[in-house]
Design a protein around this nucleic acid. Structure first.
Lengths: 151, 151
DNA sequence: TGCATTCGTAACTATTATAGTTACAAAGCT
DNA sequence: AGCTTTGTAACTATAATAGTTACGAATGCA
């Protein structure tokens, strides 16, 4: 069983940006909503920026916003941006090559795990950030001039 | 990204038992093939026993063997036995409930992650230990009286 | 019955991934 | 110029996993 909440945090972050529309959102206000440290948020934002899902700007009026419409951002892209892609792993140390099973299990399992990771991505591809935002609440988007993003 | 090789090791272990047929396999000989410590193997075997996938016996002529035919053991069962089930997780600390996104993202993501975990299990359900063994090598099963299991 | 053998498990250490924190240079407004 | 925010480095803290040693309990056999 793994341990990373980065995907969940990334979706949370993008939902906040989606609700903010054109208004840039600062990492500090995101951190308040996510209830964590701003640097943790900036690391996620950085990964999302590298994946071209958001754009960020420094400066007093800076912050981050979505690079495209929420309808055009799938959870698959978010997942790849922050988790690198492969969730299911092989042995840590390579098995004994002197045993037929040990010598071949890597290749056999590799195929299975590749298919499994593909199934994950396919499942995530079916949901967009627009779907997420729509499910968050059946109500109009946030108004301007609030401190905490998406309040 | 997670970090557990238990699933890979468990499949490796079961492949060894499958190839051994009725002959009980000792944790020490499994450990040699997997290239790790016997206690690590025994912990996996213990989990597989709790899931009724194998049976084990103490004593000089003891060891472990499959509880049923390899055709009737799916990777889904193996996965649940050693990984508990949920690979995709939510936030570590709960988000701010004072923010609409924070207050609702848990429920929304929960649904998505449940579906994703289900997709994983469905993908794994399509392969049995018999498939794994068949792919390991197109050759007859091991002969008796070998020290290292499955050699 | 006594003994060698093996499992199951506790207890501890080592390693690694993730998250949290402090600090600061670089970028960008006004 | 001066204030603000991002991006990142460097460090600490926490937690999961794996590795190791040790030992009681179960089992079969002489």
């Amino acid at each position: 069983m793994p341990t990373s909440s980065r995907f969940a945090v990334a979706v949370h972050v993008l939902a906040l940006l989606a609700r903010a529309g054109d208004e840039p959102v600062k990492s500090d206000s995101v951190a308040v909503s996510v209830n964590t440290n701003p640097v943790v948020i900036r690391r996620i934002l950085c990964a999302l920026g590298r994946a071209r899902l958001i754009t960020s700007q420094t400066g007093a009026t800076g912050g981050s916003r979505l690079a495209r419409a929420p309808e055009r951002i799938t959870l698959r892209e978010v997942y790849r941006a922050v988790e690198g892609g492969d969730t299911f792993l092989l042995h840590r140390q390579p098995p004994s090559r002197r045993c037929i099973v040990g010598a071949n299990i890597g290749a056999v399992l590799g195929g299975v795990l590749r298919e499994t990771n593909a199934a994950v991505e396919q499942a995530l591809a079916g949901t967009t950030m627009a779907d997420i935002v729509a499910r968050i609440r059946p109500c109009p988007p946030m108004r301007k001039s609030r401190r905490v993003a998406g309040r």
